[in-house]
Every structure is written in C-alpha cells, then in structure tokens.
Simulated assay, not measured.
Amino acid sequence: MGKPIKTEAELIAMARAELKVHSDCPDGINISIIRDGDGWEFRASAEDATVAKPGYPECVAMLVQIGDHLSKQYDVEG
C-alpha cells in the first residue's frame, strides 16, 4: 500500500502554511515541485530583490526540511 496522494497545489499550500508557522519569510517566494524518480522535492525561486531580503536563505532551508518531511508522507499526483 502506497502513501496518500496529494496534488501539487495541496502540497505547496501545506508547505506555505508550515513556513508561516516556523519562519519569517519574505513575500514573493515561488514554490514548485520537482519530481525525482519515484520521489519529489520543493524548489524555491524568487526575483533578485526577494532573494536579497533578510530571512530568504533561512526560508529556503526550512522549505527543504518541510519537503523532506512531506515527501516521506505523501506522493504527488500525476
């Protein structure tokens, strides 16, 4: 029996909710899902002005941790 399946939008919404709780992220961060074989991970991207803001590197690091956690619990649809 496999893991529960979520859509990309559901997983990204879960990540955004968790980021709000755990860190003070600047606005303007785009989150996408990259599929890797049987797994997946989050990718963050932003314009240069957002990348330069305080808290951006910590936010990306937190996103990686959240993605690691969620990818063990859920598969992505498609």
Score class of each variant (00 low, 15 high):
residue 8 E to P: 02
residue 28 G to N: 07
residue 76 V to E: 09
residue 29 I to H: 06
residue 17 A to P: 05
residue 26 P to K: 07
residue 69 H to D: 15
residue 3 K to T: 12
residue 19 L to R: 10
residue 9 A to T: 03
residue 2 G to D: 14
residue 63 L to I: 04
residue 14 M to C: 04
residue 23 S to K: 06
residue 10 E to A: 12
residue 12 I to E: 02
residue 38 D to V: 08
residue 39 G to E: 15
residue 36 D to W: 07
residue 41 E to T: 11
residue 30 N to V: 09
residue 24 D to H: 07
residue 66 I to L: 07
residue 45 S to Y: 05
residue 48 D to R: 09
residue 44 A to C: 15
residue 49 A to P: 00
residue 53 K to D: 02
residue 30 N to H: 09
residue 35 R to P: 05
residue 57 P to M: 08
residue 52 A to K: 11
residue 26 P to E: 07
residue 21 V to H: 13
residue 30 N to I: 03
residue 45 S to H: 10
residue 60 V to C: 10
residue 61 A to N: 13
residue 15 A to T: 06
residue 30 N to E: 11
residue 19 L to G: 01
residue 13 A to V: 07
residue 26 P to C: 02
residue 54 P to I: 06
residue 8 E to F: 09
residue 70 L to C: 07
residue 24 D to Q: 13
residue 75 D to E: 11
residue 45 S to R: 08
residue 63 L to T: 05
residue 38 D to S: 14
residue 72 K to I: 09
residue 14 M to F: 07
residue 32 S to Y: 12
residue 37 G to W: 03
residue 23 S to Q: 13
residue 23 S to E: 15
residue 64 V to W: 12
residue 70 L to A: 12
residue 67 G to L: 02
residue 44 A to S: 15
residue 36 D to S: 15
residue 62 M to D: 07
residue 61 A to H: 09
residue 51 V to S: 01
residue 3 K to H: 15
residue 58 E to N: 14
residue 71 S to Y: 08
residue 5 I to L: 13
residue 30 N to R: 09
residue 17 A to N: 12
residue 45 S to I: 05
residue 69 H to A: 11
residue 57 P to V: 04
residue 38 D to I: 06
